[in-house]
């Protein structure tokens, strides 16, 4: 029997893409990325507890170009997940469902995460005496 082509309720593809949709999927994507970050943090913690020689190996990787790109990505994921997570808490409390507030808060999570990531990295480079 051919698959019945009954009408279904409208799904993702019929809606115009917006910040509210981006922030929703980004919350899950960044959350999953942070699980990978947790693995790296564990590796780093274990290295720190193992001794300075192994720790230097791990720090060497973290400080490499690839390592820094990964850490930069994780920083962004953490800040974005933090911001969209707080937004979710407001929504759990029944707030931010009005279209304007919903869209504005969705956009704000991205402004926050991008700014916070840059500030964190600038501060880290400042601490390391880069400028």
């Amino acid at each position: 029997m051919a698959k019945a082509k009954r009408p279904l309720s409208p799904h993702l593809q019929v809606y115009r893409w917006g910040a509210h949709m981006a922030v929703s999927i980004m919350h899950r994507a960044t959350g999953s990325a942070l699980a990978f970050g947790a693995v790296l943090l564990t590796w780093w913690m274990v290295a720190l507890a193992t001794g300075h020689e192994y720790f230097n190996t791990v720090q060497g990787f973290a400080g490499s170009v690839v390592g820094r790109i990964i850490l930069f990505g994780i920083t962004f994921a953490l800040m974005q997940h933090l911001a969209s997570g707080v937004r979710h808490l407001f929504m759990d409390a029944g707030k931010l469902y009005e279209l304007k507030a919903n869209s504005a808060s969705a956009k704000f999570t991205f402004y926050f995460s991008i700014t916070a990531t840059l500030v964190i990295w600038a501060a880290a480079y400042k601490v390391m005496g880069a400028f």
């Binding site: 300075h52 720790f55 230097n56 920083t75 964190i120 880290a124 601490v127 390391m128």
Partner: peptide, 13 residues
Amino acid sequence: VVSFVGNAGKGHA
């Protein structure tokens, strides 16, 4: 985050 930024570039000890 504040701690890790504050300790950025530090050695094992």
